[in-house]
Write a protein that binds this DNA or RNA. Structure first.
Length: 301
DNA sequence: TTCCAGGAGAGAG
DNA sequence: CTCTCTCATGGA
């Protein structure tokens, strides 16, 4: 199946920007598990996406779902125009044009970012794979083998010890607690999807092991709240070094960021994060000059 | 060996 | 409110 009418999209940047931990690149295509099915995605040209899956019943319904997952329904150009307020972020945007903020499955996102605390991306990926191998279901597509993300029920029944034995460390009881709470319907995922950003964040922070940063990740990477701003060590570093030029609190960073970048701060954050992660020179002195705003037409990659 | 990673919670002040 | 310490684990 091919979708050939997309624009302002880069599969690589989208899937390799630390928002999802479930995609693997093999040659020039990406394999992942979404909604319990293996997907193979491949971007041949800027406008064409090749999709293969073990089970596509209705192409129209599937396309609709995929557009939502990859956030292709949004007008990326106007979002990036809105947040391109200085030369620094302009460089990040130019560099990673086409990176989208995904709308991932809610439970998987909650679980993944509970595991992400005080952890690095590679190890988070390994943890999730181990958990899926142990508590998910084995699936196969064209010789590619993977596992579905464990359901809340599966993890709740497994217990803390079993989760701990996967190498989750002290996060085991947080993950188990969230799984149990959802299984017991003390937290209703469908209801969570209908809340505003502020309401959803507050509700998520009632879970043990979910603080402000993780709640913001869930709001941004699953619930589509683009005003969410996850402040991790990198974002803190960037704002302290580039924008505020002093050591400061997340409260001040948050206030400044909304004020400065506006309602699409979530997208701005993702470009700044990925730019810093992939550029050892992100804080070089010449990059501190923000004045030189180059308004160029970034219509194409 | 020590430090760090898409942090959060508990306690102290 | 803000600081500080601790919590597993593995890679650099």
């Amino acid at each position: 199946m091919v979708i050939d009418n997309i624009s302002d999209f880069c599969l690589k940047y989208t899937l390799e920007s630390g928002q999802s931990f479930r995609w693997s690149r093999i040659d020039d295509s990406y394999y992942g598990v979404v909604n319990g099915k293996i997907l193979r995605l491949q971007q041949k040209t800027t406008s064409a996406l090749i999709i293969e899956s073990s089970c596509i019943e209705d192409e129209r319904v599937f396309t609709e779902f995929l557009f939502h997952y990859l956030d292709l329904n949004r007008d990326l150009a106007s979002i990036l125009n809105a947040v391109r307020v200085d030369g620094y972020i302009a460089k990040a945007i130019e560099h990673f044009w086409g990176m989208r903020v995904l709308n991932q499955e809610l439970w998987e996102t909650i679980a993944s970012f509970i595991l992400s605390q005080n952890n690095n991306i590679k190890r988070i990926r390994n943890l999730i794979r181990t958990l899926a191998e142990k508590f998910g279901e084995k699936i196969e597509f064209n010789g590619y083998i993977d596992y579905t993300f464990p359901t809340p029920k599966a993890l709740a029944e497994a217990g803390i010890e079993e989760i701990f034995s996967c190498g989750t460390g002290y996060r085991a009881r947080y993950l188990w607690g969230a799984a149990a709470k959802i299984t017991k319907k003390e937290l209703l995922l469908d209801k969570l999807k209908r809340l505003t950003y502020t309401e959803a964040k507050k509700e998520l922070m009632n879970l043990e092991g979910v603080g402000e940063k993780v709640a913001d990740c869930i709001c941004l990477f699953s619930l589509g709240h683009l005003e969410a701003l996850p402040i991790d060590v990198w974002i803190k570093r960037i704002f302290e070094r580039i924008y505020l030029q002093k050591k400061t609190s997340v409260t001040e960073i948050r206030q400044f960021a909304y004020d400065y970048f506006g309602e699409y701060i979530g997208y701005a954050q993702q470009y700044l994060f990925h730019y810093a992660q992939n550029n050892d020179n992100w804080a070089a002195p010449e990059k501190l000059a923000l004045k030189d705003i180059n308004i160029v037409n970034y219509d194409k990659m």
